[in-house]
């Protein structure tokens, strides 16, 4: 399966945006580890902005980094949202309430507990009626999202935006499902080469050991945050390398990406 990357967005530890992270990922500037800073969102109407959970703000940060809102250029793409879990804060609050004697749930918390909460906020923010798909493949959610987005682009012959995002759960869920940090990555994929193309990807499935990050500090996140399994691809695109990568997917199944930079 072949598709083309046109835009990239990023929000991760010490990686505040794709624009500023490219030099770091390419090894031209030093990496300094730090907390992920989720920027304030101008995209959402004030009602939604107030209520949006952190998970949604994280996904929308990477989306708006790749696709900054522009009045003359409405953001009208089909979308794929990949996350290894839902809004842990909402789930935790609901579980605590239900464990009590007279459960009364918050309706907002309840609709935040669905896996596709970020996709719902995104379609409201952009006004796009295009299809959105939200999916999960545990630690392999990024590759699953890339596969589904690539398939969508090919079968509908139109651009598709993919966002993968994960953040740590609150205690005690964090003890049974540890996630090593907060990370979101976004790609705008096209089925065709164009003036906007930055890399061509040939995608296939195999069973091989994953490509590691070049930065030891980032390798720690690749191993502990499911969405950060995209990091070797980000490094490769930032370095404009012609390279074959293996991205971790399922225990017995990996993705092979032949990456060809396009200038």
């Amino acid at each position: 399966m072949r598709f083309f990357i046109e835009q990239v967005g990023l929000c991760g530890p010490g990686l505040t945006s794709w624009g500023s992270a490219q030099n770091i990922l390419a090894g031209r500037e030093p990496y300094s580890d730090g907390e992920t800073i989720i920027p304030a969102l101008s995209l959402l109407p004030s009602n939604e902005r107030r209520r949006a959970p952190r998970l949604v703000k994280l996904a929308l940060a990477a989306l708006t980094d790749a696709l900054p809102p522009r009045a003359e250029h409405p953001c009208d793409y089909a979308s794929v949202f990949a996350s290894s879990g839902g809004d842990g804060e909402a789930v935790h609050a609901i579980m605590e309430t239900l464990a009590g004697t007279a459960p009364e749930l918050s309706p907002t918390r309840f609709h935040h507990s669905v896996h596709n909460v970020a996709a719902g906020y995104w379609s409201i923010a952009t006004g796009s009626r295009k299809a959105t798909t939200s999916l999960c493949a545990q630690n392999g959610s990024f590759v699953a999202g890339l596969m589904e987005a690539g398939c969508q682009a090919a079968s509908a012959s139109e651009k598709v935006v993919l966002v993968a995002y994960d953040l740590p759960y609150p205690t005690p869920l964090s003890e049974v499902r540890p996630i090593g940090g907060t990370f979101a990555v976004c790609f705008l994929l096209s089925p065709h080469a164009s003036d906007e193309t930055i890399a061509r990807i040939d995608f296939s499935l195999a069973s091989a050991a994953p490509t590691l990050c070049r930065h030891a500090a980032l390798e720690k996140y690749r191993r502990s945050i499911p969405a950060a399994r995209a990091l070797p691809l980000l490094e490769c695109v930032a370095r404009r390398e012609n390279k074959t990568l293996t991205l971790a997917y399922r225990e017995d199944c990996s993705a092979t990406l032949d990456v060809t930079p396009v200038s």
Partner: peptide, 22 residues
Amino acid sequence: DAIGSFLRARLGLNGPAFTLST
């Protein structure tokens, strides 16, 4: 994706798999 992981193990499938949750 617990349902996907369960069925992969249960049925011995090792191809592309994910769980859609909309």
